[in-house]
């Protein structure tokens, strides 16, 4: 049972959280102006790297806040968590 550090509540058991997929994929400004392919990329396509990945998480059984995290998909280790209004950390 891994611990995930909610930026507000601190470390809590992973079962209190839900996963929200890749972070920093904003809703397009003008969907109507996108081609079908561009729209499909927004709706259906996400990165799937081995290693560091910027993800969205929600402390669903706690404070219900969304936050972002850099997590290593190979080790599951959370390298850092940051609030939605923080910029995406630059990772080496």
């Amino acid at each position: 049972m891994q611990l995930i550090a909610c930026p507000w509540c601190g470390p809590r058991e992973e079962v209190e959280f839900s996963y929200g997929g890749q972070a920093h994929v904003p809703y397009p400004d003008s969907p109507a102006e996108l081609s079908d392919e561009e729209w499909a990329h927004y709706v259906f396509f996400r990165d799937n790297p081995k290693g560091r990945f910027a993800e969205r998480w929600n402390h669903s059984a706690g404070c219900r806040r969304w936050f972002n995290a850099i997590r290593d998909t190979a080790t599951y280790r959370f390298e850092r968590v940051y609030r939605l209004d923080d910029p995406k950390p630059v990772t080496p």
Partner: peptide
């Protein structure tokens, strides 16, 4: 205080 799970109840 804490919002958490007790048994299977929030």
């Amino acid at each position: 205080s804490a919002q958490t799970t007790l048994g299977q109840a929030g």
